[in-house]
Design a protein around this nucleic acid. Structure first.
Lengths: 140, 140
DNA sequence: CTACATCCTGTAGCAACTACGGATTCAAGC
DNA sequence: GCTTGAATCCGTAGTTGCTACAGGATGTAG
């Protein structure tokens, strides 16, 4: 019988180490474990988590995907696809394309907003006018 | 003594009427009242709300400001400023400028993201390659 | 008077985390 | 071996800005 892991220096990581290595914060890791985005960690005799390099890989994957603007749900899909058959590339591409469309819509919306706000704000000299043009615009 | 308002056709509005006029949904109105974004409505004898035109103005103001990308907290500030002295224009402009900066940052970030995703996705032919370039990119 | 629409309150849910409190447990120094 | 301070544990509540119920009380038209 293998005796329970109690301490190990290199290889398995504590929650804090993993957080530092992956560049996320600790509660985030526990959260991901809870919602099943990463597999459950092994535990020491005293219930402290021990993560291996596979956890680290996965965590970095998630962080990157989130940074790329994929939703949690999309990340889940990507993980399933990347874990699966080698020819799942089409599925991955589909998720990416959908996401790209969403991002472009967001950009378009924000640009309209920027223009509107910039124009309205430009009318405002910042001094006491009879009525602030910005407020007027909001009141219509 | 004025007897309690029990019914009135024009002027005071029911929650549903106000929602229709302002283009927001009913629960949103109750929510705004609860968090103090709009003043508490008058009530009929049977606790139904009655809103006046000032509520409508305020509600439209809020919706416009939210549409312009102001946060709830910023809206609160704008309301305070617009209710206050006539020379609060500078304050209003400051909020607008801050918001404009935030919007521009969001746009810049999304554009970087778009480029990254578009480039990575373009590498992906969608067929079974040795390894999907998109997944590879996420794994680094 | 009977339907049916609308309203009421309070609470729970969404995304995606973050922050807290109070209890262990670890690691290092002496 | 003991003490101290950092790290970890768990569960829960908060964040933002709403939205969606459930289950009951009114309003209104025919």
């Amino acid at each position: 019988m293998a005796k329970p892991i109690t301490s190990a220096r290199s290889g398995p990581h504590t929650t804090g180490e993993l957080a530092a290595l992956a560049g996320v914060n600790i509660e985030n890791i526990r959260y991901f474990e809870r919602i099943g985005l990463i597999p459950k960690a092994a535990r020491t005799a005293s219930r402290h988590r021990r993560f291996d390099t596979e956890h680290l890989r996965r965590l970095i994957f998630i962080r990157r995907a989130r940074d790329m603007g994929f939703s949690q749900d999309e990340v889940r899909t990507l993980i399933a696809l990347s874990d699966g058959r080698p020819n799942s590339c089409a599925g991955v591409k589909a998720v990416a394309e959908t996401n790209l469309r969403v991002i472009r819509e967001k950009i378009a919306r924000l640009k309209r907003l920027e223009r509107l706000l910039a124009e309205t704000s430009a009318k405002c000299a910042g001094n006491r006018t009879p009525a602030c043009p910005l407020i007027e615009a909001l009141l219509k």
